[in-house]
Amino acid sequence: MHYTLNQLRIFVAVVKAQSVTKASEELHLSQPAVSIQLKNFEAQFDIPLTEVIGRKIYITDFGYEIAAAAESIIEQVHAINYKTLAYKGQLTGKLKISVVSTGKYVMPFFLSEFLVQHAGIELLMDVTNKNRVLESLESNDVDFALVSILPTTINIEWLDLLPNRLYLIGKAGQKVTGSGDVNELFKDLPLIFREKGSGTRLVMERFIAERNISVLKKMELTSNEAVKQAILAGLGYSIMPLIGIKNELNNHELEIIEVPGLPVKTTWSLIWLKEKKHSHASSSFLEWMKCKKSEIIEHNFNWCAQYR
């Protein structure tokens, strides 16, 4: 047998995702590339690892055994790499972070220089909605989480990073009437919501409920990017975080609509479980954040100050 480490990695991803398409997305590879490597890997075994019924892939019992062995091999390879780097005096280990979806516009800027300086750190970052982020944190599956609304049901510690401001956003050039009165403005305005479990949706619903605003028409989409594209297509308006629309504002594709009571202001915070026993990698990152956050904010987010 001549299977490669890459083939093992692909097979484990397919088994976990129960789908070639989902595995290719997670691995950032094309679906044909994953299918070819999977086929080449399976061809080296006399016993089937998978079977396809209709358009769905099923893992055989033997396939699950091979996947478990493959995962163990991959972990051992990582361990060898870590030991090699550690012997050279370099920081090693895994850094696991769960980030609310809009946080993808924030977290990479706080990670980039740290990861460049510490090549032995393996980053595992999950970008999802607020509910799932908090589930990951509460079950201690991650070292840190990035949120814009602090949870009240979990015992945490946190480090505040930067302000998060949410405005009513529309396609540039679209006329909005009744802007002097909140209820008049929203009366005929088609609104686009994020999915349930999203922090942005929670802020939007609170704003509407507190002012007893009647929503005539609404659409629900499952990501900040999807909402943005819907607004660009002229499908409606939404209350969105400023942090995710920098380019569209600069290019005059989207515009902020002035509304009494907006922006809603929250804070981007890095949070972790109280009394968390940090690994060397995660404790080093936390110290890095405390020392470098002001410099990173000044360099990457000072553009936000022009919007009030």
Rank of each mutant, 00 (worst) to 15 (best):
L5E: 14
L8F: 01
I10P: 01
I10Q: 06
F11M: 12
V12T: 15
V14Q: 04
Q18K: 15
V20H: 06
E25K: 14
E25W: 11
L27A: 07
L38P: 05
N40T: 12
E42T: 13
I47D: 06
T50D: 08
I53N: 14
G54F: 09
K56R: 15
Y58K: 15
Y58Q: 13
Y58N: 14
T60F: 12
F62K: 11
F62Y: 15
I66T: 09
E71A: 14
I73S: 07
I74H: 10
H78N: 07
A79K: 15
A86F: 08
Q90I: 07
L91H: 09
L91D: 03
L91T: 06
G93W: 03
K94M: 08
L95Y: 02
V99C: 04
V99E: 02
T102V: 07
T102L: 05
K104Y: 02
V106L: 13
M107Q: 06
P108M: 03
P108G: 07
F114V: 04
V116H: 12
E122I: 11
L124Q: 06
V127A: 02
N129W: 00
N131G: 04
N131M: 04
R132N: 14
L134Q: 03
E135T: 13
E138K: 15
E138R: 08
V142I: 13
F144V: 05
V147Q: 01
S148T: 08
S148R: 00
T152H: 06
D160I: 00
L162H: 00
P163T: 11
R165V: 08
L168G: 04
G170K: 09
A172E: 10
G173D: 00
G180D: 12
D181R: 07
N183G: 04
N183Y: 02
E184W: 03
F186N: 00
L189W: 04
L191M: 15
L191S: 00
G197W: 10
G199P: 06
R201H: 09
R201P: 09
L202I: 13
V203P: 01
E205F: 06
I208M: 13
A209I: 09
A209L: 14
R211D: 05
V215A: 12
V215Q: 07
N224C: 08
E225P: 02
A226F: 10
V227F: 04
Q229K: 14
A230W: 04
I231S: 01
A233R: 11
G236V: 08
Y237W: 05
I239V: 14
M240A: 08
P241L: 13
I245G: 04
I245E: 01
K246L: 10
E248Q: 11
L249W: 09
H252W: 01
E253V: 00
E253S: 03
V259I: 14
P260Q: 09
G261A: 06
L262I: 09
V264N: 00
I271G: 05
L273W: 01
K274P: 01
K274T: 08
E275G: 08
K276Y: 12
K277Y: 07
H278L: 13
H280S: 11
H280T: 12
S282Y: 12
S283L: 11
S284M: 08
S284T: 14
C291N: 13
K292D: 00
K293Q: 12
S294M: 10
S294D: 15
I297R: 05
I297Q: 05
H299A: 14
N300S: 11
F301C: 10
F301A: 10
W303F: 10
W303L: 05
A305R: 13
Q306R: 13
R308I: 10
